[in-house]
């Protein structure tokens, strides 16, 4: 079986299967569940993801500390009118914001790979599915493709902000979503992984600096920008931009960068925007 992207791609070409199929075979072996059962789990997860991406578009949620109440609705309303990047990009941002808002208000979400970064994969899957009229079946395959990319990061690096900073959460989520978006647009397996690599390279070194220690600021904003990062990274791969650094080496370098980051920049709220005067004032206001 495989432990990294290189070995995964080798199995794909050997067995003439797509990434999602090889990953699904592995999952069946690993968990002892039937294929149908695993697919059922993914289908439920996709539904929960979509629900959380849509829930706050029109209905403002009450979040702890109130820092991100209404962020999804704000971007959603704006997406309907004139904007720089257009309605589609702004809508995808709104979807990602929605997941973050739902998460921060004790709503139901699906961690992907974490709760703090739970908006990126759903926003990209739903945005591309609707905008490019992709079938639900293919979207489900894209979700499995994204999970396979996430598993490579989990195994060979980290997906915890406390270990690797935000690059390990929103960075990995964008990387997963980029592979999924590329797959939905008909990219080959190696192009899907190129897209995943581009997305991680775009935000390598991103720090985790939650204001007042809450999963809100800047997390919601980084979910919105992470979703857009995934889309443009998929477009880079689809355009045929050359990935000079193999995906496994990108994963490895992300892990090393995460180790180099000081603890102040890894979820402890002791650095970054968390310790700005404004950030500290917010902390005081919420916790006294």
């Amino acid at each position: 079986m495989y432990k990294n992207a290189e070995e995964l791609l080798a199995i794909c070409s050997e067995q003439n299967k797509r990434i999602w199929e090889v990953a699904l075979d592995n999952e069946v072996k690993l968990t002892g569940m039937s294929r149908e059962r695993v697919m059922q789990h993914f289908s439920i997860r996709l539904e929960i993801m979509f629900n959380s991406a849509l829930k706050a578009l029109e209905h403002r949620q009450a979040t702890k500390g109130g820092l991100i109440d209404g962020v999804a609705n704000c971007q959603y309303e704006y997406s309907k009118g004139e904007s720089i990047t257009g309605g589609y990009i702004n809508y995808v941002m709104a979807l990602a914001y929605s997941c973050s808002e739902v998460n921060a208000s004790m709503g139901k979400i699906c961690a992907s790979p974490t709760a703090g970064s739970c908006g990126i994969v759903p926003a990209v899957l739903l945005g591309v599915m609707e905008n490019k009229r992709v079938s639900r079946e293919k979207t489900l395959e894209a979700l499995i493709t994204a999970s396979a990319v996430g598993a490579i990061f989990t195994k060979n690096a980290t997906v915890a902000g406390a270990d690797g900073g935000c690059q390990a959460e929103c960075g990995v989520a964008a990387s997963m979503a980029a592979a999924a978006a590329a797959y939905m647009m008909g990219a080959s397996d190696d192009k899907c992984l190129d897209a995943a690599g581009f997305a991680m390279i775009n935000v390598m070194g991103l720090v985790c600096d939650p204001v007042a220690g809450l999963v809100a600021l800047p997390c919601a904003q980084r979910n919105a920008s992470g979703a857009v990062n995934a889309l443009i990274s998929a477009d880079m791969a689809l355009a045929g931009q050359v990935a000079h650094i193999p995906f496994d080496q990108v994963v490895d370098s992300m892990f090393k960068v995460g180790k180099m980051l000081p603890p102040q920049l890894k979820e402890t709220a002791m650095g970054g925007i968390a310790t700005t005067p404004a950030g500290q004032a917010i902390f005081k206001e919420i916790f006294g």
Binding site: R45, V102, S105, M106, G107, K108, I109, C110, A111, A115
Partner: peptide, 9 residues
Amino acid sequence: VVGPVMIGP
């Protein structure tokens, strides 16, 4: 990786 399904945050 894609999970758990949970109540945030």
